[in-house]
Design a protein around this nucleic acid. Sequence first.
DNA 1: CAGGTTTGATATGGCGGAAGTATCAAGCAC
DNA 2: GTGCTTGATACTTCCGCCATATCAAACCTG
Lengths: 302, 302
Amino acid sequence: MIDLRKMEQFVAVAEALHFHRAAARLGMSQPPLTVAMRRLEADLGVPLLERGDKRLLGLTAAGEAFLGEARETLRQADVAIQAARDTAAGRLGRVRLGYVGSALYGRLPETIRAFRAAKPNVDLELREATTAAQLADLEEGALDVGVVIPPVADAAGLTLSDFDDDRLCIALAKDHPLAEAGELAVADLADEPFILWPMVEGRGFHLQVVRLCANAGFVPRVVQEAHGMHAVLSLVAVGAGVAIVPASMQTFRQDRIVYRPIAEPAAAFPLCLATLASSSRASSPAAAAFVELAAGASRGGL
Amino acid sequence: MIDLRKMEQFVAVAEALHFHRAAARLGMSQPPLTVAMRRLEADLGVPLLERGDKRLLGLTAAGEAFLGEARETLRQADVAIQAARDTAAGRLGRVRLGYVGSALYGRLPETIRAFRAAKPNVDLELREATTAAQLADLEEGALDVGVVIPPVADAAGLTLSDFDDDRLCIALAKDHPLAEAGELAVADLADEPFILWPMVEGRGFHLQVVRLCANAGFVPRVVQEAHGMHAVLSLVAVGAGVAIVPASMQTFRQDRIVYRPIAEPAAAFPLCLATLASSSRASSPAAAAFVELAAGASRGGL
DNA sequence: CAGGTTTGATATGGCGGAAGTATCAAGCAC
DNA sequence: GTGCTTGATACTTCCGCCATATCAAACCTG
């Protein structure tokens, strides 16, 4: 019989293309894995692995086809188990929500609060991660909903919906020469020292700022990287440089900082909700409810 | 471990709400089924069945939730198995088929139609390309099957098989002086104005014609290039010149055109199917099926 | 209420599958 | 060649599943 265990083993072998490493990942030894794969092939009546002389070369076409469907089967089996446990525990569901760090300064916190209030029995798991990591997790079924920074190459069956439509603005020390101006263009900052948060933490936002400067014809001279938006603003306050931040940061008022809007249309800073097309349909009604609530709030303004 | 067998058993029990009948349906006896269900519940850590005093009353909420997802899991597992088998049998998959432009005027279209009808679940991707480009793509694994013009230097492990055995013929305006002749030699055309399709579109065919003329001792005087075989024939029809075309074009009868066979053996215009030797074996059964169908039809005449 | 029927639970033995250890065989690197 | 890598094979052990046999409780029937 072809059971989930064999599928799991096959997926490991197919991914590692190496019996020994696959066995290690499965926490077993190599010989039974070899035997299991031969047996799986025998049960299917179809070769899945292409064996060169004493070395795995790759998957056959059938192997490729089986790999994808087996992954889906394992994911679905997990859904079944979770569904039973969640229901028994009185939970109506679970939403694993990923978000890029910069989303915390927009309307995401309010949305989270609203969802928790509307569905107190749904587990909302929060995970900060980059856009790329979230998309990967979504495809693996490790995430239900992601708050990501577009553009997103829709490799797999991802569904996107607008979530937040923030803009970027410029944060300056109050006594900065440019602080008097009404509206600034990004180009005005060409010679200013920049404070930016590091590439590793919030890659999408980092790129957004760099791209905005590139459009204005210069490369920002970064004098300081700061972890976290509040650290960035603290450095701006002490006059270390200027920063480009989400406009929603203006809610954090501080005497020594002034915010100036950015004229360029390129200063738009939208966020999208991404879900796996198949996931929102069947396997997670709770996730669908989250997306719906977020979209509804979006239409209703804030 | 929770495997597919237990899910299958649970579905049977949940549907029958009766251990004996469920066991009968599963082709097993009742006692192990009872044990299996207890074990399933223990593994999940959740009761699924509501037991009245010595009688199954129904499912718990968790049981209901699990039932649906378990059914889906079983369905998906079946999809995985079928996908592997169908792919191996060539019923499912993808064939990337390259062809030289002139192949479109032979039996390729009919072959494509027959294959699509025979294997509706196989993606047949069509790409027009020169012989050289196809051979390169085949070696890179970017193409599964190519319809090419021989001769082909079998650099790598390419497998060739005869596909089409057309001949070239001469197309003349009906009132052309040579139209009365029975069979013509290419040399008879030495002083005629030629209509040819351009080098860029159908390089192999272009060369074939030029070579044929060179064998007959002259260089064709090309008065007009026309994109596409039908454009060529239209120009022939209005008396702009003569053309050498695949004999299969004779199926496009037109009052103002006559076709004449060419005596020379060099007027053969064969096409071959090329596949990567290793590919036809394992990595693409669908491609192998295409080749087989093409070869079978070839043997069967038509 | 007695006795049989229905329905599920329990006990035990056999069989098969899966994992482990040990070992082998073939290719590859130095 | 020597040693390493990588997969295949042999054999043993152990665990889980299934079947038969049996039990226990509830239900039905006269």
